[in-house]
Amino acid sequence: MALSRAEVERIAELARLDLTPAEEELFASQLGKIVDYFDQLRGFEDTDTDGVADLDVDSLEADDLPVPCLPREAFLDNAPESIDGFLVVPPVKAKPG
C-alpha cells in the first residue's frame, strides 16, 4: 500500500518539513512499503504486556539544585543570528498587511 499524497503532506506538515513534489512521490511509495512491513505488529497479541516500564535501568537520581549552565556567550557563539546577547528570530505571526 502506498501512502496517499495527502497523507504524506499531512505528515510533512506535522514534522515541519517542506517536501518537493519529487520527494512527496518518492516518500509516498517508500513509506507505504515500510508501513506495510510495520503492519506485522498488528498480528502480535500478548495480553501479558502493557508496554510500560520496559527498561529497568538502575538509574541515578540527582538532587534538584541550581548548578552553573553554559555561559551565554558560549551558547550564542553557535547561534545563527544574535543581537546584544539575544537570539534573533522572525516574527511568530506575519505583520498585518
Binding site: F38, L41, R42, F44, D46, D48, T49, D50, G51, V52, D54
Partner: peptide, 11 residues
C-alpha cells in the same frame, strides 16, 4: 504502531 511496538519490545 507505537503502542504495539512497546508491547512487542516488552515481550
Amino acid at each position: 504502531y507505537y503502542g504495539r511496538a512497546l508491547a512487542v519490545r516488552q515481550a
